[in-house]
Design a binder for these strands. Structure first.
Lengths: 216, 216
DNA sequence: CAAACTATGAGACATTTTGTCTCAGTGTTG
DNA sequence: CAACACTGAGACAAAATGTCTCATAGTTTG
């Protein structure tokens, strides 16, 4: 970028004009994604929405895919951190936070665009894998705490536990288009914490993990 | 359609040429969706892929959105039919079928496009609601059978049960990008059938059901 | 403060894509 | 065989896309 001249100061861009444009475009991208979906995130629409010139959008993000990825990555993931005992109560609170977050249209837009786009875009798939990895690690840590505290008989497979806890929230939010009740959360926590059913000796759950996108 | 002349024979189109073109375009749409995603499903790409003229694609589907919806609706939903006792075993087999289906790239493409597109397209949202409705009804029927057979202490809320059963499969398939193990299925079935945790007297689960798309 | 930078806005420009239309050719039906 | 209807090929205007130039103005440096 930057007027064709090679970068002078590393890759850090501290020019306030550049930062302003970047912020405006990012905000515009988030708005367009939320209101009309990824297909509305074009350089032309972005320029109009952000109040900048079309060329400026091209200078910042030659490819809109990278911009969309930036929007999805910007969210961060402040959930399931710092487990405390009893884990049941902690889990309930965290799942409630996540459910409230997933109730927001903007979050639904980024989450589903991430899941959807990962099927065909290698970079989006990497972003998705990273998010899933973080989430699994945090829940695994919490389950360890619970087991150490004697709150669980046998620690389940972390990946399975995350699927059993978060999967229903996703289903309720994205497919049933409804609110997550505290009753549902309570049921899920109790089910997972009780550690019902078979343990996982040779679990083939993640055997084909992290598949690459593109045509099969 | 049809050369500008008003429709002569209702809306049924039995001309073999028309049927051939339609089938070729539908097949092309499914292929493009699976391999490159919804953004690749344009009239131009469809024409090339289907081996028909561009004008023909416009004649059949002036809007590609309707075509995509057709592709997603064409799948049907042959799952969770005809419950038999014991429901545990029946549920296990049905969930295995669904998981195997969800493992296919083509099914992932249509399913996630349905969830994703429903956020901004009213028609897609309707299609999604219909799918969810059918699924919930079938599982509810199965749970009734289980309860009548004394297999379950207290019948859970059907919507919650579906979320608890199918949600994890979706999470494993679409986010963790992994295979669904029989162990996971067994765990899920056991958790739901045991009817652990609070019953659902005044469940607010689906209070904001079937929200309309478009900008918030 | 003044000069050297550097991102921006506005627009030109060629190219591609999109949507609509016409018309001759041909498969289909009666 | 004759009337009908869909298709393919292409023309066409409009819109979108990607790249470029240059004057202007905001920013940093001396």
């Amino acid at each position: 970028m930057r007027q064709g001249v090679a970068e002078t100061r590393e890759s850090v861009q501290d020019d306030p004009r550049w930062a302003r444009s970047r912020a405006a475009i990012l905000k515009a991208a988030a708005t367009l994604l939320r209101q009309e979906g990824p297909s509305a995130v074009t350089h032309q629409r972005l320029a109009k929405q952000a109040g900048v010139a079309r060329a400026t959008v091209y200078r910042h993000w030659p490819r809109t895919e990278a911009l969309l990825l930036q929007v999805m990555a910007a969210e961060g993931f402040p959930f399931f951190q710092h487990p405390t005992i009893p884990i049941r109560a902690w889990l309930h609170t965290r799942l409630r936070e996540l459910a409230d977050d997933l109730a927001q249209p903007a979050v639904q837009a980024t989450t589903l665009t991430l899941m959807h786009g990962a099927l065909w875009d290698r970079d989006i798939a990497a972003q998705r894998d990273q998010l899933v990895g973080v989430l699994t690690e945090r829940v695994a840590a919490a389950l360890d705490v619970a087991h150490d505290a004697g709150e669980m008989p046998q620690p389940p497979d972390p990946a399975d536990a995350v699927a059993a806890l978060v999967g229903p929230l996703l289903y309720r939010t994205a497919l049933q288009a409804g609110a997550v009740s505290d009753t549902l959360i309570e049921t899920l926590v109790e089910q997972v914490m009780t550690g019902r059913a078979a343990s996982v000796p040779l679990d083939r759950a993640l055997q084909q993990r992290s598949v690459q996108p593109s045509a099969p």
